[in-house]
Amino acid sequence: MATEGGSGFSIHPMDQFIVKPLFGDGPVQWYTPTNVTLWMGIAILCIFGLFVLATRHRGIIPTRLQSVAEVFYGFIHNMVEEVAGHEGVKYFPHVMTLFLFILLSNLLGLLPMSFTTTSHIAVTAVLAVLVFLGVTLIGIARKGLGFFAMFWVSSAPLALRPVLAVIEVISYMMRPVSHSIRLAGNLMAGHAVLKVFAGFASMAVVAPVAIGAATAIYALELLVAVVQAYVFTILTCVYLKDAVGDAHH
């Protein structure tokens, strides 16, 4: 929010990320319905509308909504098959759900008076940890102890292998951290900058410049919303390849 008064001009770009209860003004508990809950629910309803309602009456000549659903389906299916391999295709529904939830959450967050759920590390961390645990469990279930061969770089000199193994383990354990922070950080930063320029738009002197800059940043944020959903999804496919493919040496 931008205010002008005795204390000068001020903008509070981080206010848009405050988690608030939907009913009342009490403290937020783990069971409290909040604005985060609301917009995650709306994202899920949008997915339902796209893939259930749009394909309910499938035809040889698809409707526009059915065409959109088919494009998303084919795009993610090809990504999973190309990156994770044929064995990874069986996990396509999970990857597809992740992509759609993140994409729609990102896009819905650009609507006026909305809330960007994927700008919160609490949301993206849960998604990243689910991917991490899922990939790890799938790898152990499919390969047993052979899954841990990915940490042993057999092509390196014998003296360096233990050191490289430790580095590989640390890198593997850091995956959910980088996976979640990348998504939340990019969205939070972009929305904060957008709010700053929107605040300057209330000043008559710089309004034209601020409005032009806000419009350009909004267009950039649309691109970031799509790209970050893609990046999160393709990294999931890369991690999945470790579980279903051959260990690297």
Rank of each mutant, 00 (worst) to 15 (best):
L53E: 13
L53P: 07
I61P: 02
Y91I: 00
G49T: 02
F51Q: 01
I61V: 07
G59F: 10
V83S: 06
F75Y: 05
A54H: 13
G59S: 15
T55F: 08
I60V: 15
T97S: 14
M79R: 02
V89Q: 03
E81P: 01
L98Y: 14
H77L: 06
V68N: 09
V68W: 14
M96V: 06
E87S: 13
L65T: 06
I76S: 02
L65K: 10
V80T: 08
Q66W: 11
I76D: 04
T97N: 09
K90G: 05
Y73P: 00
H94M: 06
T63G: 03
Y91R: 01
V68Q: 10
Y73L: 01
F72P: 00
M79V: 00
M96E: 07
L50G: 05
V52G: 07
A69L: 02
H77A: 10
G88N: 04
L100Y: 12
V80P: 06
E70A: 12
T55W: 10
Y91V: 01
F92C: 05
F99V: 00
E87N: 12
V80H: 10
I61H: 11
L100M: 15
H86C: 04
I60L: 15
F51D: 04
Y73R: 04
V95T: 04
G74C: 01
H94C: 00
V71I: 14
P62R: 13
P93L: 06
E82A: 12
V68D: 08
V83A: 05
A69C: 03
R64V: 12
F92R: 02
